[in-house]
C-alpha cells in the first residue's frame, strides 16, 4: 500500500515538474577565421622574418624594390630601423611577394594602391 502511494505520488510529481535538461547541441566545430587568409598571412610572416629560402630573380629587382620601399616608409618608426624590406627585392617569387604584402597590410594596417595588389 505504501509503495503504491509512493508510486502515485511520484506520478503526480513527475507530471508537474521539469524533468529534462535544457538546450540542444548547436552544430559546427572550430574553423579558421573568415576575413583573414591564415596560410597567406603565415607565409608572409615567414618571409618577413627571413625564415623562407629566397630566390635569385634579378629581372624583378627594380619592380619589387620600388614597391617594398613604399611599404618600408609606412612601417611604424620603431619597426623601420629593425627591418630593411628592400633587401628582399629580386629575391622573392610572386607567391612570396604577394604573401609578404598581405602580411604587411594585415600586421601594420598598411594599404598602398598598387596594380600588384589587384
Amino acid at each position: 500500500m505504501v509503495r503504491m502511494l509512493l508510486a502515485y505520488g511520484s506520478v503526480f510529481f513527475l507530471s508537474v515538474v521539469d524533468l529534462a535538461a535544457s538546450g540542444s547541441y548547436i552544430g559546427g566545430g572550430p574553423r579558421p577565421p573568415r576575413q583573414i587568409k591564415p596560410e597567406l598571412y603565415h607565409l608572409g610572416k615567414s618571409v618577413y622574418a627571413g625564415k623562407v629560402a629566397t630566390k635569385d630573380l634579378p629581372s624583378l629587382r627594380d619592380e619589387q624594390n620600388q614597391l617594398l620601399l613604399q611599404y618600408q616608409k609606412r612601417l611604424p618608426r620603431t619597426v623601420q630601423s629593425k627591418i630593411d624590406l628592400s633587401s628582399l627585392a629580386g629575391k622573392l617569387d610572386e607567391e612570396q611577394m604577394t604573401a609578404l604584402i598581405y602580411f604587411l597590410e594585415i600586421r601594420y594596417k598598411i594599404k598602398i594602391a598598387d596594380d600588384k595588389s589587384n
Binding site: 529534462a20 535538461a21 535544457s22 579558421p32 603565415h42 607565409l43
Partner: peptide, 29 residues
C-alpha cells in the same frame, strides 16, 4: 515543462566568457 522529455530547465540568465583563437602555419589552428 512538467514531463519527462521536456527540452529545457525553463530558466533565463546571463553568461560571461573569454574566447580564444590561434592560427598556426600549415593550416593548423
Amino acid at each position: 515543462v512538467g514531463f519527462p522529455s521536456a527540452v529545457g530547465d525553463g530558466a533565463s540568465g546571463f553568461s560571461g566568457s573569454l574566447l580564444f583563437g590561434k592560427t598556426f602555419p600549415k593550416g593548423f589552428g
